[in-house]
Design a protein around this nucleic acid. Sequence first.
DNA 1: CGGGAACAAAAAGTCAGACTTATTTGTCAC
DNA 2: GTGACAAATAAGTCTGACTTTTTGTTCCCG
Lengths: 235, 235
Amino acid sequence: MSTTGRGLHGHVLETLGPAITAGEYPPGSVLRTDELAQQFDCSRSVMREAVRVLESMHLVESRRRVGVTVRPKSEWNVYDPQVIRWRLAGADRPHQLRSLTVLRSAVEPVAAGLAAQHATAQQCAELTECALGMVAHSRGHQLEGYLFHDVAFHRVILNASGNEMFARLGDVVAEVLAGRTHHEVMFEDPDPAAVTLHVQVAEAVRARDAARAEHLVREITVGALQELDILAPGK
Amino acid sequence: MSTTGRGLHGHVLETLGPAITAGEYPPGSVLRTDELAQQFDCSRSVMREAVRVLESMHLVESRRRVGVTVRPKSEWNVYDPQVIRWRLAGADRPHQLRSLTVLRSAVEPVAAGLAAQHATAQQCAELTECALGMVAHSRGHQLEGYLFHDVAFHRVILNASGNEMFARLGDVVAEVLAGRTHHEVMFEDPDPAAVTLHVQVAEAVRARDAARAEHLVREITVGALQELDILAPGK
DNA sequence: CGGGAACAAAAAGTCAGACTTATTTGTCAC
DNA sequence: GTGACAAATAAGTCTGACTTTTTGTTCCCG
């Protein structure tokens, strides 16, 4: 599941990163490379490489004669998949999940509109297939199967949009959907209305009806917002 | 302007990073740490740290007995501010600018709607101030002054949305707007209609009219899309 | 008593070289 | 051909010495 973790360097990252994003070291905290190397029982070279990566994520800043200082949350590269994963695994998981769901609600409808314009025949077919898969797994506690097709569905939409920035949000959406199924509100069976909407989206894209695709996906994301009580149920 | 660049390690990154994002090394290309260290006239340690950072950006993958292989563009962390900057400085600047403008068109309207709900009194004041600044610099070749207030305006909107993911797109928007003013279509004076829209957005946010704020910003972003011929002028 | 210049200390930055480990590739026997 | 074994290769790791920058202190002079 985790992309990093290979090698000693990866192990250090997978420990320090989550610790920082979890707020264990408050902003302004100063770490010393030598001390950290001792704590993690590794050489300074390995520690330096790890710090470099954390620095590229804007989690910390390394300055001579000062040390490695932890930066405030507002400066973190919150779009870095690794940072997202660390935060989802930590204490502010709910908060992160909300932020990402709001992001989804902004991006996915527009992506769907573009997908309706640019999707290839194969992508249309995949979309229909995913929607049918969702229908097939929508009843009788087949949550894992449903999730699988749901994730695939949204990935196809994002990819078919033809926009590379949208396409790279596929992993984020996957995390959010998985999080919802595994940790958050988990209905016995998915909302039938949502399932229907997905099928209709597939139809709209196939019919090249951009406005309708966008509108339908907006309804789906509104549902996701309501599940997290971000949006009032009415209107 | 550039956050990195400090130290030998930063210099290597600022050379290798742009080279990779510019496509100088096609996907699958294999680099050897030793050779690179020789090329850049630095030690292996410095080179390794640079490679680690590039790896965390998913630009390359380092494997034993193989070397450092360049990953396909589709796997890059395209939301990394550094990657964005490198790409904007390179050959596919137009393409990147289009991708980012489409992203803006998805995110900013939603952010504006949220800003209308959550903006503090001070943020409302700042917004009005920015809008007035835009008006003041909208005539007579005061493009730099106009740009300054335009960037500030959109930053306030994104910050006031209360969503950390939106807030962190402030730098991206700044880059896009600056790019438009400095390199792309550059009108003698900004479109008066756009200026008016910004003023109206400030009013809508102040009036807590989320739907109106969202609609108005959507019109602004539609204008931005049309400037880049992404959207047909009609509709 | 205050301000500035010289100095000392601290921590990151850099380097060189030796050694380890994983992975691939090639070879040989079965 | 297939399997196991051996060799080659490049990244990974460690160590220790040295450099550079920044900061805080001290001390002298105005």
